[in-house]
Simulated assay, not measured.
Amino acid sequence: MIDLLTTHYNYVVSVLLFGIGLYVVMGSDNLVKKVIGMNIFQVGIFLFFVTIGYVDGGVPPVVGHGQTTFVSPLPHVLILTAIVVGVSLTAVALALIIRIYNGYGTLDESVIKEVQVDD
């Protein structure tokens, strides 16, 4: 069991990042902390996909290599796209949080719900 954890530590770290991100998103009432938790969760997903895409002894799929073990570029391309989408999503979320703060004067989700019920 210990040998399995030491050889596949990337999977352990990605599961820890999943858990930490999910805990922060679900356990916090602060909207900025929720965005940070979402980013931590995304990093766990990125690490998981890059780890899956790794091939021991593989080379890039370029013509001229004499080996038969190639690494698929698809997971890496997907992660690059996901990073761009994640940065965009974070920027939009923070812009919305600024608007919410200007409108309600707080970033606490429970206070915002109370204000909406009162209106």
Rank of each mutant, 00 (worst) to 15 (best):
I2W: 07
L5V: 12
T6G: 06
T6P: 00
T7G: 12
Y9D: 00
N10S: 07
Y11F: 12
Y11E: 03
V13P: 00
S14M: 07
S14Q: 06
L16I: 13
L17Y: 08
L17T: 02
L17F: 13
F18M: 11
F18H: 14
G19D: 00
I20V: 07
L22H: 15
V24I: 11
V24S: 06
V25S: 01
V25N: 04
M26E: 11
M26V: 09
S28G: 01
S28N: 07
N30V: 01
V32G: 01
I36T: 10
I36K: 00
M38C: 08
M38P: 07
Q42T: 10
V43W: 07
G44E: 05
I45E: 02
V50G: 02
V55G: 14
V55H: 14
V55L: 10
V55Y: 14
D56M: 13
G57L: 07
P60D: 06
P60A: 09
P61C: 05
V62D: 12
V63Q: 12
V63K: 14
G64K: 12
G64C: 07
H65P: 03
G66K: 09
G66F: 14
Q67K: 13
T68V: 00
F70N: 05
F70D: 02
V71H: 14
V71Y: 15
S72V: 10
P73A: 01
L74C: 10
L74M: 09
H76L: 10
H76Y: 15
H76I: 14
V77D: 05
V77L: 05
I79M: 06
L80W: 15
L80P: 11
T81C: 04
T81W: 10
A82D: 08
I83F: 14
I83H: 06
V84A: 04
V85D: 01
S88L: 08
S88A: 05
L89T: 07
L89P: 15
T90D: 04
T90E: 04
V92Y: 15
V92C: 11
A93F: 15
A95I: 01
I98R: 09
R99F: 15
I100R: 11
I100V: 09
Y101C: 07
Y101R: 05
Y101P: 14
Y101D: 03
N102D: 06
G103S: 08
G103K: 12
Y104T: 03
Y104W: 09
L107A: 03
D108G: 00
E109A: 13
S110E: 03
V111N: 02
V111Q: 02
Q116L: 05
V117H: 14
D119I: 08
